[in-house]
């Protein structure tokens, strides 16, 4: 997809208003006929980044496929808040099987579609970071290596929020969770742990991998749309703040997500066939402290003695900026 540099932003927000764009560039959400795949009335918390990310992602996929989508959902917040029996917020065919098998179930749905001669129906698997990077990782890797025709969407809120905020392998260093309390000489999650599943996905050399953020919804829509142009295994990892688990204000979800991106802690990139092909440049560098300060899970870093750990986190961001080429001019 050809990208056009857009220079008209709404004051102070870096958000490009739809009214400033050509109709074909406008957000899916600006369309009266948008799918509303995840419709209103669900039970997500106020300011839930995952609900926002899921709605944008699935609606973009709906537009890209003419509404021919089947979704497979891992156990987790998204599953629980969207389908309390007998209600459902999903306006698409949707199945929840288990916590750790969404990728495999999706592989099965895709195989069935091929055999039914209906492979214009595209399959999406989705889950949180726990269901993706931990318990569902085996099935995810299997789906990747077989290059099954599935788009996997990971909504990363950096811990097991549905069970009460426990550490996952996507929890960042120093973050306080219920299982990494802010106590002792190294409060919060320890440094030097965790895994980068987007890069692991790239290492599988699948057709398409991208990271996205609810801070940049247009970019999120673009990446899901782009993913639907490929056949085979695709992975989009979406950063979604969780006000409850992060201790941030519900009204600040976008602000927090943007600070993660603009500080370099959550790099946005795309990879095609195992090669990183683009990264989103940081528009206005934000110190990591400005990101961390918005969240109570990092409050201990701002107590006396937290300086070294703060510096360590800043160094992680600096390394990302170099590694992913996040500096410079860009769209």
């Amino acid at each position: 997809m050809e990208m056009q540099t857009v220079r008209f932003y709404q004051t102070g927000t870096f958000t490009v208003g739809n009214r400033l764009l050509a109709p074909h560039e406008r957000s899916v959400q600006a369309e009266a006929q948008r799918a509303n795949a995840l419709t209103s009335g669900h039970r997500a918390c106020q300011g839930c980044g995952e609900a926002l990310g899921a709605r944008y992602a699935i609606d973009a996929a709906m537009r890209a496929t003419g509404g021919k989508i089947v979704a497979v959902n891992a156990t987790g917040c998204l599953e629980v808040f969207s389908t309390p029996y007998p209600e459902t917020s999903w306006q698409i065919p949707w199945i929840h099987s288990l916590f750790g098998n969404a990728a495999a179930v999706a592989s099965g749905v895709a195989a069935a579609m091929r055999r039914k001669g209906t492979d214009d129906v595209r399959v999406i698997a989705q889950g949180g970071d726990g269901g993706t990077t931990d318990i569902g990782f085996g099935c995810l890797s299997g789906m990747f290596e077989r290059n099954d025709d599935v788009l996997y969407l990971c909504y990363d809120n950096e811990a097991y929020m549905n069970t009460g905020v426990q550490r996952s392998s996507a929890t960042p260093p120093a973050a306080r969770t219920a299982t990494t309390p802010a106590m002792g000489p190294e409060p919060g999650n320890v440094f030097g742990t965790g895994k980068n599943v987007p890069l692991i996905a790239v290492a599988h050399q699948i057709p398409y991998v991208a990271t996205a953020s609810v801070a940049n919804l247009r970019d999120l829509e673009y990446k899901v749309t782009r993913a639907m142009e490929f056949r085979g295994a695709r992975y989009v990892h979406i950063h979604v703040p969780c006000p409850l688990g992060w201790g941030s204000a519900p009204a600040d979800t976008i602000k927090v997500a943007r600070a993660a991106v603009e500080s370099g802690l959550f790099p946005l990139f795309e990879a095609v066939n195992g090669e990183i092909v683009s990264s989103t440049k940081i528009r206005r560098r934000t110190p990591t402290a400005d990101y961390l300060r918005l969240q109570k899970r990092f409050a201990h870093l701002f107590q006396p003695g937290g300086e070294a750990r703060l510096a360590h986190i800043q160094a992680i961001a600096e390394r990302n900026i170099v590694k992913f080429g996040l500096e410079g001019t860009g769209a």
């Binding site: 089947v70 099987s97 495999a104 999706a106 099965g108 195989a111 099935c139």
Partner: peptide
């Protein structure tokens, strides 16, 4: 675990 999970997906489809 994946074998039966794939089966769940294809059967549900």
């Amino acid at each position: 675990f994946a074998a039966l999970s794939v089966a769940i997906g294809s059967s549900a489809a």
